[in-house]
Computed example of a mutant assay.
Amino acid sequence: MKAAVLTEAGKPLVIEDVVISKPGPHEVLIRTAACGLCHSDLHFIDGAYPHPLPAIPGHEAAGIVEAVGSEVRTVAVGDAVVSCLSAYCGHCEFCVSGRMSLCLGADTRRGPDEAPRITRPDGSTVGQMLNLSAFAEQMLIHEHACVRIDPDMPLDRAAVIGCAVTTGAGTIFNACKLTPGETVAVVGCGGVGLATINAAKIAGAGRIIAADPIKEKRDLAIKLGATDVIDAAADDAAGQIVEMTKGGVDHAIEAVGRPASGDLAVGSLKRGGTATILGMMPLDHKVGLSAMDMLSGKKLQGVLMGENRFPVDIPRLVDFYLRGMLDLDSIVAETIPLEQINDGFDKMKKGDAARSVIVFN
């Protein structure tokens, strides 16, 4: 099969022919239909986050089940599925306490004494990034890394639910537990930020303020449900949010992974408000509250993948789309073939568009 392989950090992905294994116990072979380009992938491609190489990135995907191994109970051949990097074992402390997104998923990978799932034709191992490696014509993954969805769902739209929408919507529904009428500021209007804004609208937020330095993304934010927009690069951005809300917001959500964005989120809070960090910050960066912030009852939390329970959350998000509540059409800026993947990441670096999605024949 063809796949986009990361051979060296900081270099373009290389389209190669690789060999995928047959499904073992609890494993599912999926014919990939579509995969979104996520900024998280770019962190690994650029080397900001380390990973053994060579490896195949890609984790925001949808496809059709082609084959299943023994013991598989959750999907069947022919099912339309969405994959999710929050692969769960089902029996660790985090899983049994309802925090599945924190599961390290050790049991969902092949062990060191087993044959690798992906190799080059010479037999050398190709790393499976984030338990998925979706920039490839096929995926071989654990059944607990995907979920069956409504077959009426367009798969190029379903793909972005696997990460961006699950993260953004999950943050609103699961982590923030937004109460209708509460005010929300979202810093960063990429795929995750736009999904957060759309979910805040669905949840009944009273006011949704989108902050981004790029006008085109602010315009998209309004289309997705923002009531107000500001330039996140303005010196008084936090002050603008505090002024327009007469004291600050109940929830400020950082959705881009930049230190200044974390500061803006914290600076936008009202007394008792909560700042939520979604973005992948530089590994040595710290976000904090001042003593006065804490005396004002402000809170700071980190959230991984929207605290999702994706076997339940993703089918619900699919239903939201099919009922016209979730606007994935505006989040997906373009569909491209695998051969244009590096161009897609170049566009991401410019930051003036939403999601690019690879579609496979």
Score class of each variant (00 low, 15 high):
residue 77 V to C: 05
residue 78 G to R: 08
residue 79 D to Q: 11
residue 79 D to M: 01
residue 80 A to E: 15
residue 81 V to G: 01
residue 82 V to Q: 11
residue 83 S to W: 07
residue 84 C to Q: 11
residue 85 L to Y: 12
residue 85 L to R: 02
residue 85 L to H: 04
residue 86 S to V: 14
residue 87 A to R: 07
residue 88 Y to L: 01
residue 90 G to F: 09
residue 91 H to S: 14
residue 91 H to Q: 09
residue 92 C to W: 04
residue 93 E to G: 11
residue 93 E to D: 11
residue 95 C to K: 13
residue 97 S to I: 15
residue 97 S to D: 04
residue 97 S to G: 15
residue 99 R to I: 04
residue 100 M to L: 09
residue 100 M to A: 05
residue 100 M to C: 12
residue 101 S to F: 14
residue 101 S to G: 15
residue 101 S to M: 08
residue 102 L to M: 06
residue 102 L to Y: 14
residue 103 C to L: 00
residue 104 L to A: 15
residue 104 L to R: 13
residue 106 A to M: 10
residue 108 T to F: 05
residue 110 R to N: 03
residue 110 R to I: 10
residue 110 R to T: 07
residue 112 P to Y: 13
residue 113 D to T: 13
residue 113 D to Y: 15
residue 114 E to I: 08
residue 115 A to W: 01
residue 116 P to L: 09
residue 117 R to N: 08
residue 118 I to C: 10
residue 119 T to V: 12
residue 120 R to L: 07
residue 121 P to E: 05
residue 121 P to C: 02
residue 122 D to G: 11
residue 124 S to Q: 06
residue 125 T to P: 06
residue 126 V to W: 08
residue 128 Q to A: 01
residue 129 M to E: 12
residue 129 M to G: 05
residue 130 L to H: 03
residue 130 L to K: 02
residue 130 L to D: 02
residue 131 N to M: 09
residue 131 N to R: 01
residue 132 L to R: 11
residue 132 L to K: 05
residue 132 L to Y: 15
residue 134 A to F: 00
residue 134 A to Q: 09
residue 136 A to C: 04
residue 137 E to W: 05
residue 138 Q to V: 13
residue 139 M to S: 10
residue 139 M to L: 04
residue 141 I to L: 12
residue 143 E to D: 07
residue 143 E to Q: 07
residue 144 H to W: 09
residue 145 A to F: 05
residue 147 V to W: 01
residue 148 R to F: 14
residue 148 R to C: 09
residue 149 I to C: 04
residue 149 I to K: 07
residue 149 I to N: 03
residue 151 P to I: 08
residue 151 P to K: 14
residue 152 D to R: 12
residue 153 M to T: 10
residue 154 P to W: 07
residue 154 P to V: 12
residue 155 L to P: 14
residue 155 L to E: 11
residue 156 D to K: 13
residue 157 R to Q: 09
residue 158 A to G: 03
residue 159 A to G: 12
residue 160 V to F: 06
residue 160 V to T: 06
residue 162 G to H: 08
residue 163 C to N: 08
residue 164 A to D: 02
residue 165 V to I: 02
residue 165 V to R: 00
residue 166 T to F: 07
residue 167 T to M: 09
residue 169 A to Q: 11
residue 170 G to I: 05
residue 170 G to Q: 00
residue 170 G to A: 04
residue 171 T to Q: 00
residue 173 F to M: 06
residue 173 F to R: 06
residue 174 N to M: 07
residue 174 N to D: 12
residue 175 A to S: 04
residue 175 A to F: 00
residue 177 K to V: 15
residue 178 L to A: 03
residue 179 T to L: 06
residue 180 P to Y: 12
residue 181 G to P: 02
residue 183 T to R: 13
residue 183 T to P: 00
residue 184 V to G: 08
residue 185 A to W: 13
residue 186 V to G: 04
residue 187 V to T: 02
residue 187 V to Y: 14
residue 187 V to P: 08
residue 187 V to N: 03
residue 187 V to M: 12
